[in-house]
């Protein structure tokens, strides 16, 4: 028996909104420690890794570890019926072929339940190595969204370079070119939300497809901050930590010289 109850049900809704553009169906691996998901986009360019800790839920019970294969677009449709302040309960039997969603309004005056059929999904699992990244930038999640959306007007590929002057996002396309540089401002009186922290061991310059970054940026409603971790010739890690709940990480393969 699996049962998880979350007062801040909206978090589940936001997590699915942040995944469904990239992943159509995925296994939610449930165990006594929580819920994990790892899935690639259909082009196998990026990898999403979700972790939701059991302690992050108001109630969490999982008697047997198992994968719950779910179509994310169906799940997103069901979650449209969940209101902002609703309490969400997820339930599945050990040998069942469905997952149950229950949405309760805060005042307990409306209760909805939905059942979704589970799917058998053959998913490839990757071992993600612990990487000692050469540069880490932590900034406002909404500011990162803004940069990705604004720069995509000009081109498809962004060059991200971290140097002593800050982190520069550059795009060039048929219309022209654009650069946005964000500087470390931890020494000034910047308010917490707008802080930019740049931790650089050595300069890094890598190219990435903007459309994936724009999809990753859909996770911004989950939290205030995002971290970008870069090293030469390895995937970019874009990590959204969700306080007391878990994290949503995205890995994006760089563009490489032929």
């Amino acid at each position: 028996m699996f049962e998880a109850r979350l007062t801040k049900g909206e978090l589940i809704k936001k997590v699915i909104e942040a995944l469904k553009d990239l992943v159509t169906e995925a296994n939610f691996d449930i165990s006594a420690t929580g819920i994990q998901l790892q899935a690639m986009d259909s082009s196998h360019v990026s990898l999403c890794a979700l972790q939701m800790k059991a302690e992050g839920f108001d109630h969490f019970r999982c008697d047997r570890s198992m994968p719950l294969g779910i179509n994310l677009s169906s799940m997103s449709k069901v979650l449209k019926c969940c209101n902002k302040d609703d309490i969400v309960t997820l339930k599945a039997e050990d040998d069942g072929d469905s997952i149950n969603f229950m949405f309760e309004s805060k005042d307990q005056d409306k209760i909805s339940d939905f059942e979704l059929k589970l799917m058998d999904i053959d998913s490839e699992h990757f071992g993600i190595p612990d990487t000692d990244y050469k540069a880490t930038v932590t900034m406002s999640a909404s500011e990162f969204t803004r940069i990705c959306n604004d720069l995509s007007i000009l081109g498809e590929t962004v060059a991200i370079s971290v140097g002593k002057d800050g982190v520069r996002f550059s795009v060039s396309g048929e219309m022209g070119t654009g650069n946005m540089t964000v500087r470390d401002n931890t020494s000034s009186d910047t308010k917490e939300a707008d802080r930019v922290e740049i931790d650089m061991e050595e300069p890094v310059n890598l190219n990435f497809a903007l459309r994936y970054l724009k999809s990753f940026a859909k996770a911004a409603p989950l939290t205030d901050r995002v971290s970008l971790c870069l090293s030469r010739d390895v995937p970019l890690l874009v990590k959204y930590e969700i306080p007391e709940f878990g994290s949503l990480s995205y890995y994006l393969a760089p563009k490489i010289d032929d």
Binding site: M40, H44, V45, G127, V234, Y251
Partner: peptide
């Protein structure tokens, strides 16, 4: 000229 690499190139299947 640049091309898009795949994520499996970097992570071992496990």
């Amino acid at each position: 000229k640049q091309s898009q690499s795949k994520i499996s190139r970097f992570f071992a299947a496990g």
